[in-house]
Each structure stands twice: as C-alpha cells, then as structure tokens.
Design a protein around this nucleic acid. Structure first.
Length: 807
RNA sequence: GCGCGGGUGGUGGAAUUGGUAGACACGAGGGACUUAAAAUCCCUUGGCCUCACGGCCGUGCGGGUUCAAGUCCCGCCCCGCGCACCA
C-alpha cells in the first residue's frame, strides 16, 4: 500500500499541469464561460502570506469546480507592482524598483504554483511593464480628451525640507515622517479624474449588484448624494455674494448667521481692520491641523467672527458671517447658512458664541434640543403653516423667482486626485507647452517610458524624481513642435488596477488595450475575490468600466458580477499576523512541513465561513491533514482488496446521493466549510461500513469522494483518479449527479413531541404515512407517559421530521 | 453620532430558513494495537440531577406571536468593522 506523500504527489502533478499548459484557455463559443479572479497581489519581498493563500484558494476552488461543469474557465494572474514599498526600498538601497519587482514576481509565481493553483499563466500581466502601462497611459489620454482628466489647484501636505508632497498618513502630529519638520498645507496644481460626473450612474447600479450589503452601503455612503438647494446671500455693504448649499431650504427664515470654511476664498474680503489679525491666525491654525487633530478635538466648536454681515434673502435681516473649521472647504460651496434651531452643529455653535436662535418649525425636539423632524412652518412670513415637506420646493421656487436660489444635488464624493510626485508609477502622458498648455502624448508615442534614474527621492518644488531627468523632461510639443516639458507626476497605482480585469481578456495585444470581441466574450467577471478595498478600488473599477461602456469598448457597464468579500486570517493568538508579534504563519512553511498544498487549501476553507475573520489553528490543520490521510488510506485499502464481491448497500448509496447534493449546493453558495464537513461525514460512514468488507459498489463511493474533493485537494485526487483506473484528467471529468429520490435512507428517524417538547425519537420506514407515524408515536412508551391518557387535541406532522402531539 | 455585521459548548463553527440545538473539526477523557512512544483505529464529551429508564435547564438580556422560536415581532445590553462636523 502506497503511503500518503503530499510532497511527492504535488511535485508530480504540478509538473504535469505545467507541461500540458492545462489551464490555458481561449474564447470558445460552444461552451459557457466563467471568469474568476482574485484582486491581484502586490508582489512584496516577503512572499505569499496567509491572506493570499486564503484568497487564491477560494478563487482556485471556484475555477476547478466550474471546469467540471463544462465551463470554459478563465483564471488569470497578474501583479500590481507600482507603489510605495518598492520606491522606498529604492530610496534606501539605490536598487532599481523594476529589478526588485522582477525578483519578487518570480518568487510569488513559484509560490503560487506550489499551492496548486489552476492559472492560465500565458495571461500574466504586470502593471509596471511598459507594454501594460502604455495602455494605462492611453486611457489617461482618452479621459483627457473627454474632459475626464483635468488639472486643478488643490490643498496638499507639503514638507518644506524634503520638498515633497506627503500623503495624509505620512504626516505625524503635524510633522514630516522622514525629517520631523513641521509640514504645511500648500495649494498645488494636481491631476484629477472626474469621477463625480459618474456619481449618479455609479449610485444607480448599486442596488442591482450581487455584492455584500456592507460594500454596497459603503459605496452608497461614499458617493453621498444629497438633494437640496444653492442659495445666494448678498454681503452687506460690499459688492460680493456668498452662496451656500443646504438640504433644508425650508428653514431659511431661521438662518441667523453664516459660517464659511477657513479655506474659503472670500475670507480675506470679509475681514476688517479689527478682525483681520484674529481671523488670519485662526485660518492659519485650522489649515495646519491634520484630520486626526480635528477628530481629537471632538465636536467642540471653534470659530471667529469675520466682521462682515450678509442679508438673509428671506427675512431681509443682517446676519453675521463667521469662519469655523466645522464647515468643510471641499463640500458644497464651503459655506453654510446656519439654522441653529434645526441643526445640532449650528446650535452648538450658536450656544457657544451667543448667537440668536429662531425656531421656524412647529415640531418635535430631539434629544439635542433641535427640531429636525417634519412639521409646519412658523416665523416664516407668508409661508407660515406650510408643511415642511412641501416647503422645500415652494421656498426654492420663491427664491428662484428672485434669482437667489436653485435646486442642487451635491455629492460627498470628490474627484479622484491621481497625480503623485513619485518615481515608481506610470508617467502621466502629458506634455506642457507654453503655447498649447497641457497636450496629451499621441497614441503613436506611447508608452512614455519611465526613465532609469540614480536618485529615487522626490525632487524640487513638488516634482517627482523624474523632474531631475533633464533629457527626459525636455521634449517637443506634439502640436507645434516647439520645446516643451513633460509632466513629471506619475499616476496613482489605483489607475493601473482600474482596468486590469479587461486586460486579462487580451493580455498580449500590442495594438489596443484589448479587443472588444474578446472582452465581451469574458466580461463581466463572474467572481471577484478579495478582502480589502471596500470603496476605493472597487469604485474606481466600476467608474472606468462605466466610461469604457460609454466609449463602446465593452458591452457591460458593471465589471464585477459577484463580489466575494472574505475575512481576514488572524494569527493563532487572535491578533493580526505581524512580524512584530512573531505570530506570522507562512503558508509555504505549512506546505514544506509536510502537510502539503492540499491540506493547506482544504484547511483555510474549513476554518469557517469565508466572509468571517478567522484565527489560524495549528491543531485544526492537523485535523484536516488526518482527514485527507483517511481518504487516501481508504482508497488504498479498497484498491488493495481483492477479490471484490458484487454487492450494494442501499443506505450507503443514499448517503452518497445526499452527500453529492449537499456538497454541490455548498460549492455553489461558497459554503466550503460545510461541504468539507459533509465529506468528512461521508468518509466516517465509509470507515464504519468497510469493516464488513469491500464490495463492487465501493468503486463508485471512492470515485464520488475523489471527485467531490477535487477542487479542494487537486493533487491527491488527481493521483487517486489515476490509480482508480482513469486515463483522462479529473479536472474536466463531469461532476457526479444525484437523484433526489435516492437520497432517502430506508429507515428514517422521526422526532416525537408532546406539547412541543421532545419525548422520543422513533424509527420508521421511509414510505410511512402520517397515520403510520402518528400511530407509532402514540404507542411509544415514553410518549404515553406524557399523554397521561388524554386525547390529542391536535397532531402536527412534518413528513420525515417530526410528530407533535398537542393535548 | 450614523451605517453594516455579529453574540450558540472549553474552542472554530453547524442547524435543510419556523420543525430533534450543538453537524463537522479541534481540545479533553477512556480503550485497542505497541516492550514503550509516535502514528493509526474505536468509544465518550453542553450543564445539572439520576445506579439506571429518564428528567430539568440551555442559543447575550426582557417580553410577545406559534402546536413548535437560535431562526419571526417589540424593547434593551454587549462586541467587531466601516464612515465620521457632508449643512
């Protein structure tokens, strides 16, 4: 009898799969297609971690399952290689990120192969490969032509010593993370993608997505649509106006003051001799504060009076204009009309600075003393008595007549800032010409190849390391041929990952980003597996796809049909795995320790439901190893047993049908943990049954077991399939079927309740009627005791499950 | 604060969507094999009471609906995650 030797088996089968290019696919109109992918990894220097093992086991299990159902399965892999870790490593060591990346990819690929993943490696992509980012740049130029990519001044954290822009998370306590010097906010010209143009479209599709509610609501909230009005206030004694956005135009008669954000352009015009200094100090302070500082201050309101007043267009009254950081510069118009009687924040501000409160709604106060519910208007001139629900429209119409108001929809979502003053990214394909301004690099000149440099750190006043490469920066204008300069910013890595799912469908196309025919065969992605990026990436992919649809480059608008959002794999101690805790489990170690990839794969799926976080258990993985070992041993014992008598055990056959049904359904619903449990149960029963000897029907039991287990443990099952006498590959062997009629065992156990309490279980033949069951139940000794001679008032019978006798 | 999940044995988790709560696995205990150990195989394992047959209690807490509630309804408590002064 051959012993179970995972390492030997896995080497053998991985080589066969690779030599035969077993998982390479092409468009095939005769078969249904299935496109499945994980969120492609950033190939770090440390290799695969347990999260990768989890994610890609899910992907691979789905891929393998569908192959047995006759699907043409696309399961690709690629590398999300641009990003900070490689650049920081380069800054520290001087080693070129491109070179390090190639090494890391090779390591990742080797490790993935050892997990037994069924990937079409001919479609491998790498976002930092010029053949790939050529098309990322092409998309940029297309967006630019459509006005979807544009430049705008925006506030950025800036370190005056390192002369670089910093991300929010690189500012610690107001200081630069590298040099420790105080940072400042600077207004700089940045590139944006106009995702806000698609806000409504992206929002509209959310309800129809087969995605977890959690992600759908996160996206809905992120887009943050609100309907309201813009109202213009005239500034008293000045030829200036202040426009606000409000969702409650009906409360305008209660607007007793105004508040503008510290960033507001009008701040300087509103101050006077007396207030100038105080306001300037406040604004400078506010701009220096990080988001975190603001959060730490809680909801405590701060602010200063500008010295100016506005005229409330409804009441005609003069109301003071304040500056306060609770009003955000980036939302709405950066200014609000404060209605303290009907807004908690405005009330808190009014109380702190003793500003008047006018209640304009007859309604119910909430716990904070504010009426936000509906009611009828009061103190509102001609509108008194109007229900608030009607008042919104009526008042906007009235303001509109006077030319000071209109309906307006506002979104929380801002345009996507995509420029990065960093080296390791796809160069933004723009040339700046004195005469023609920003000009897109023509398609024929793409890609704009990232030049080799010696120094990777950001340079100069807001430029990346590329700003130092003079012969690269200096070029000619595509429009007029005069000397011009290249854009030295690179693109956010999220740009590269916003279209890779389409590139997989046609990865080696040198003429186009993809051939629409190929994309339309595969798109949309049927399963997208990941455990990160609830909003950013998943919103950006949708955004690009919506644009591509409009451009006629794909037929489907939504790129991802089903999102499989799994939990984290935590360490054995329940904490996050981390080098500093010393609790990291390396999946390759697990394989090397002798458990093998089959055990690793089966274990990560057995830990619990995939959407939940789980904790690694080195005891638990032993249990899964034992299970696979039991399957192997059982098969070996069967194969070694001879001669085999003819024979058939009905109950075992019923269990086989039941198991096929249960396991198949679980695969479809991704309930892998319970599928594995059902297989364990089947194996346990087979162990009990084998004590009476193997008979001819065992061939079908072992084969069924092997087939049902194959997507989880592909190596071992491939080997057993061969040993069972099959020449063809198990991968594409048709999945076993079940017959509902045969899932019933000959004897069924029925629960008997008296007044809803369990009093006995009785064994009945499967074809028993309600009367048979009732009779059997009534004659049960223990049941009789509880009936105590009383006549049943009612008998409830659930076929095959229970009898409840009510007395 | 708002939104989304979730509270079931010593542990991870099952429960056909209202029908025998605790499948499966880990851990623990016992047994077989062995000179011994490992490996393997078998049995027991929610708590309490009982020699036993069996009984009582039990799915975060309090009510309710129902022949029947982990599951549905009402009111609370706790935990995790996401967003967070969005006017």
């Amino acid at each position: 009898m051959k012993r179970f030797n995972p390492s030997e088996l896995e080497t053998k089968w991985q080589k066969i799969w690779e030599d035969q290019s077993r998982y390479e696919v092409n468009e095939d109109s005769t078969k249904p297609k299935l496109y499945v992918s994980g969120m492609f990894p950033y190939p770090s220097a440390s290799g695969l971690h347990s999260g990768h093992a989890f994610s890609y086991t899910i992907v691979d299990t789905i891929a393998r399952f569908y192959r047995t159902h006759g699907y043409n399965v696309l399961n690709p892999m690629g590398w999300d290689t641009f990003g900070l870790p490689a650049e920081n490593y380069a800054i520290k060591t001087g080693k070129a990120p491109a070179k390090v990346t190639v090494e890391n990819i090779a390591n990742f690929k080797r490790q993935f192969k050892r997990m037994g993943v069924s990937i079409d490696w001919s479609r491998e992509i790498n976002t930092s490969d010029p053949d790939y980012y050529k098309w990322t740049q092409w998309v940029f130029t297309e967006f630019f032509k459509q006005g979807l990519a544009y430049q705008k001044q925006s506030m950025q954290w800036w370190c005056p010593v390192d002369k670089t822009v910093l991300a929010n998370e690189q500012v610690e306590g107001g200081k630069c993370w590298r040099c420790g010097n105080e940072v400042e906010k600077r207004s700089m010209k940045q590139w944006f993608f106009k995702i806000t143009d698609y806000a409504d479209d992206l929002l509209a599709e959310i309800p129809d997505l087969d995605w977890p509610e959690k992600i759908k609501t996160a996206q809905t909230n992120w887009i943050g649509r609100s309907e309201g009005a813009e109202i213009t206030f005239v500034i008293d004694g000045q030829n200036e106006e202040l426009t606000v956005f409000t969702t409650r135009p009906d409360t305008i008669f209660g607007a007793t003051f105004m508040v503008i954000a510290p960033e507001h352009q009008l701040v300087n015009k509103l101050v006077n001799e007396d207030t100038k200094q105080v306001v300037e100090n406040y604004v400078a302070d506010a701009l220096k504060k990080s988001e975190i500082d603001r959060m730490n201050e809680g909801k405590e309101k701060t602010g200063v009076f500008t010295g100016s007043h506005a005229i409330n267009p409804a009441t005609g009254e003069k109301i003071p204009i304040w500056v306060a950081d609770y009003v955000l510069g980036g939302y709405g118009t950066g200014a609000v009309m404060a209605v303290p009687a009907h807004d908690e924040r405005d009330l808190a501000f009014a109380e702190k600075f003793s500003l008047p409160v006018v209640n304009v709604i007859d309604g119910v106060k909430n716990d904070d003393g504010v009426i936000i519910s509906e009611g009828t208007l009061q103190n509102s001139g001609a509108f008194d008595g109007t229900p608030t629900s009607d008042a919104r429209e009526v008042i906007v119409a009235w303001l509109k007549e006077q030319g000071v108001g209109k309906s307006k929809i506002t979104y929380k979502m801002r345009d996507w800032l995509i420029s990065r003053q960093r080296y390791w990214g796809a160069p933004i394909p723009i040339i700046h010409c004195d005469e023609h301004g920003a000009v897109a690099v023509p398609e024929a000149d793409l890609p704009v190849v990232l030049p080799e440099v010696k120094e990777y750190a950001p340079k100069g006043e807001g430029g990346s390391a590329l700003a130092g490469v003079e012969d690269w920066v200096n070029t000619t204008c595509p429009e007029c041929g005069k000397p011009a300069k290249r854009e030295t910013d690179t693109m956010d890595g999220y740009a590269c990952s916003s279209w890779y799912l389409l590139r997989y469908t046609d990865p080696n196309n040198a003429k186009q980003a993809w051939n629409p025919e190929k994309a339309n065969y595969w798109a949309p992605l049927d399963y997208y597996v990941g455990g990160d990026h609830a909003v950013a990436h998943l919103l950006y992919v949708r955004f690009w796809s919506h644009v591509f649809k409009k451009m006629g480059l794909v037929d489907v608008r939504e790129p991802v049909k089903k999102l499989v959002y799994h939990g984290y794999v935590n360490a054995e101690d329940g904490r996050k795995m981390s080098k500093s805790f010393g609790n990291v489990i390396d999946p390759l170690d697990i394989i090397d320790q002798g458990y093998g990839a089959d055990t690793l794969r089966t274990y990560v799926l057995f830990m619990g439901p995939i959407e939940l976080d789980s904790a690694w258990s080195s005891q638990g993985i032993g249990g899964v190893y034992r299970f696979l070992n039991r399957v192997w041993t059982l098969a070996q014992e069967y194969l070694g047993a001879s001669p085999q008598e003819a024979g058939k055990q009905d109950d075992l056959e019923a269990l086989r049908h039941k198991t096929i049904k249960k396991v198949t359904r679980d695969y479809h619903s991704l309930g892998f943990n319970t599928a594995i449990a059902a297989l364990m149960e089947y194996v346990n029963e087979l162990y009990k049954a084998k004590t009476t000897g193997f008979t001819s029907d065992w061939q079908i039991h072992i084969e069924t077991l092997v087939q049902l287990l194959a997507p989880f443990a592909p190596h071992m099952t491939a080997e057993l399939w061969q040993q069972l006498g099959h020449d063809g590959p198990l991968d594409t062997t048709e999945w076993p079927t079940w017959d509902d009629a045969l899932t019933q065992a000959s004897v069924i156990t029925v629960a008997v309740q008296v007044n809803g309490k369990l009093r006995a279980t009785i064994e009945l033949s499967a074809d028993s009627t309600q009367d048979d069951a009732t009779t059997a139940a009534m004659t049960n000794e223990n049941v009789q005791r509880f009936l105590d001679g009383k006549q049943p008032k009612k008998v409830v019978y659930v076929p095959g499950r229970l009898v409840n006798i009510v007395v």
